[in-house]
Amino acid sequence: MGKIIVEVMLKPEILDPQGQAVGNALPRLGFSFAQSVRQGKRFEIEVAGEPTPAMLADVEKAAEEFLANTVIETFVVKVEK
């Protein structure tokens, strides 16, 4: 069984109130490392066998059309080793 990962992030110019809220909470909890936080999504897709190039092309298409909204988001498709 193989696993394909799709990670989706809001584009840098799109306001991310969720990430900001998390970033503002960290110092209150005593964590002082963060200059800023942005929150995204990760899809873990299990497939039968090793992902083929054709399958990856299909995942790209699904990400472009559905998993991400490219008006406001970017995505990357990866194969998990």
Partner: peptide, 16 residues
Amino acid sequence: AEAHLLPGALTRNADM
């Protein structure tokens, strides 16, 4: 907007 019948997108309210 998601169906691309209208442009743009509706995102989280700025003040949460």
